[in-house]
Design a protein around this nucleic acid. Structure first.
Lengths: 265, 265
DNA sequence: AAGCTCTGTAACTCGTTTAATCACGAAAGA
DNA sequence: TCTTTCGTGATTAAACGAGTTACAGAGCTT
């Protein structure tokens, strides 16, 4: 097992370059050139373990992306642009392409608001679940009940809750630790806190959400034996909406009962 | 030849999604779902022409990226997240990855300033050439001579010239049309203009650059019959640096002679 | 000048991936 | 019960990319 930090950085860079659409040879070639500034096909081949005869193709590919300069001599010399310039080139290119995608998708998307979906749906992955929650928050009109563990109360979530509160939406937060509560009270003055409905941290943690009494989401961190705790993909959620939705009915019953009980105590 | 604008937008979206790493089936499936909001495997198969039995795999792939929600019923129903959420998801993901790449590359890059490269080098593509020019400008100490056609005098270039001028670098600009000259004089008070050295617009246009009398770049727009004029990839350049560099020697001779002549007239 | 090495181009082989098809049991509806 | 539809799994075929080999020309060495 290699603990050479340079080796690590190189393979990381190679992996990212490949995911951005470069071939394996092109990625390895660029990293080799970036590490040594400039070099011939032979030198690149030695340090990157790319077959020498394939270095020319790889460099050609990089040249078309504007990532290397070529000196037409014998032997040819290749020169990688600076890492800073390279990063900015990618940044620009990708921003441009996401913009193209966004425009195309918006043109495709049906204009009319989606008919309300019936049934129970699933989403996986912390980022995707957070997105869904944020969309629910943005649509909230009356009340948000949100119960979570500290790890999943990100700045994005807090910000969205704050915006909702300013619209006059009643915000009820549960399950957060004392120190986080103080911070919340500062940022969202209108929010009210309630204690965990049950011993949240003992079991596998997750979130419970109800908006306007008719949109609900439940998630769990699936930190079993296999998934690492830090893996953001290890959260799974179900959600549903509508007055008669079975998940909504259940969640509403639980929340109403427990919150009423807690308030009357 | 289809002139249906929706069809266009769809294929554009599919292409971008594929370049972001999705399979062809997944991309087509997502576009179909985005267009119709939600649907079953059969419906998706009909509008996207993805084999029905493969829709399940495609949806699985999309689900792992957090792009669709799945309703576990029979028949299963699939639901695409909003185009706005999808775009932001990609944007975040790509920003994160470019950041990883940037860090890794900077760790790899040798700390010491590169030994000055000898010889004549080539770069292709407008963006890459502009990057090279900007790097030259950033290093300029005494004097910048830049001659170009209007199309290639972008805001980036003007901004970099302005920064150089503020550092005390003497800036000489040539080949720009009268109306652009006025604008330049506002933004870069220190800049001096000179007329085109020769009838620039008649021949294939491009740029000439010399920095500190020892770094030079020449480019040409290769608008032959094939390349469209708006194609940003159709510019090709050569550059070189160092007092004895052949390209530098030639360019310096031309510029010195013509500029001196022009000034003494 | 003959023999050698090295460079750069091109063609080819092999393996993996991905698109596309097929077979089938389970479930639902007529 | 018969028929259709659904979802899974396996199989085939095509495409792509990695890796190898062949070779002509240029440059050195002796």
């Amino acid at each position: 097992m290699s603990d050479d930090p340079f080796e690590d950085a190189r393979s990381v860079a190679v992996e990212q370059l490949e995911r951005f659409g470069l071939s394996a040879y092109a990625a390895r070639t660029f990293v080799a050139l970036a590490a040594h500034g400039s070099g011939t096909a032979r030198k690149v081949s030695q340090v990157s373990e790319v077959p020498r005869t394939q270095v020319y193709n790889a460099v050609e590919e990089l040249h078309e992306h504007g990532l290397v300069h070529i000196q037409h001599a014998s032997p040819k010399r290749f020169w990688a642009i600076s890492s800073e310039t390279a990063s900015r080139t990618f940044q620009h290119e990708l921003r441009r392409r996401t913009e193209i995608l966004r425009t195309a998708l918006e043109e495709i998307e049906p204009p009319k608001p989606q008919a309300e979906q019936r049934g129970v749906w699933t989403v996986d992955g912390q980022a995707a679940i957070t997105n869904r929650v944020l969309e629910f928050f943005a649509d909230a009109g009356d009340e948000i009940v949100y119960m979570t563990v500290g790890d999943l109360l990100t700045d994005e979530i807090i910000e969205a809750l704050g915006e909702a509160a300013e619209r006059g939406v009643s915000v009820r937060l549960g399950g957060v630790s004392q120190d986080v509560q103080d911070r919340i009270q500062d940022e969202i003055p209108g929010a009210t806190m309630f204690e965990s409905l049950w011993m949240w941290s003992d079991t596998a943690a997750g979130r419970l959400m109800m908006v306007d009494g008719q949109k609900t989401l439940v998630s769990a961190l699936v930190n079993g034996a296999e998934a690492s705790p830090s893996d953001p993909r290890s959260e799974t959620a179900i959600w549903g909406q509508g007055n008669t939705n079975s998940l909504v009915v259940i969640l509403r019953a639980i929340f109403t009962w427990r919150l009423d009980t807690a308030e009357s105590e």
